[in-house]
Computed example of a mutant assay.
Amino acid sequence: MESSSEPFIMNDSEAIMLALKTILNIDNYPILIHSNKGKHRIGVLVGIMRKLLQGWSITGIFNEYDKFAGGKGESDIEFIECFEPRGLKVDEANLPGFVRIE
């Protein structure tokens, strides 16, 4: 996915959904998640994973994002906060151990 830059390029919900589907299937492991510098795009994905899959608070997510991404745009933070996984289906028998959702 392209790096977001306001106001023209926003985060890609479809790319995030595809990544989540891949990450949520243990059959795809071992898995490496990376981007060009491993900060902003990965920070968005990890923030969404923390929110949806591990029950982190928004404050904790934002603190972690800021620590590793070194700030950047409000658009990334807003995207993490507002993202909803519409239509995400998972096989609970194949979930990785780090998932803490009920």
Rank of each mutant, 00 (worst) to 15 (best):
K72P: 00
K51W: 02
M1E: 12
E74P: 06
R86D: 15
D76C: 06
C82D: 04
G73Y: 01
K37R: 13
G43E: 04
A93F: 13
N25W: 03
G70N: 12
M1H: 11
G73E: 07
L52P: 03
A93M: 14
G38I: 09
F8L: 13
K67G: 00
L20P: 12
G43A: 10
F62V: 11
S13G: 04
K39E: 03
L52F: 01
S3D: 15
V90F: 08
F62C: 06
K21R: 15
I58W: 00
K51I: 01
E84C: 00
L18V: 14
S13E: 15
F79K: 00
N11L: 09
R50V: 00
I77A: 05
K67Y: 09
H34E: 13
F68V: 13
M49Q: 12
G38Y: 10
E64R: 07
V90P: 13
S13C: 06
R41L: 09
C82I: 00
I16H: 07
S4E: 07
I26T: 05
I26F: 11
L24A: 10
M10I: 09
G47H: 07
N11T: 02
G71I: 10
G43P: 12
M1W: 03
K51R: 06
E92W: 05
P85L: 02
L88C: 10
L88V: 11
G87W: 04
V99Y: 07
R100I: 09
S4L: 04
T59L: 08
I33L: 13
D66H: 09
L53Y: 03
L95S: 03
K37Y: 12
C82F: 00
L45F: 08
D12Y: 02
I80R: 02
K21H: 04
E14L: 14
S35V: 10
I33N: 06
I42M: 14
N36G: 12
V90S: 11
L24E: 02
E74I: 04
M1S: 15
I48M: 03
L24S: 05
L32K: 10
Q54Y: 04
N28I: 08
T59N: 09
H40Q: 07
E84L: 01
I31M: 15
N36K: 11
S5I: 14
G70R: 13
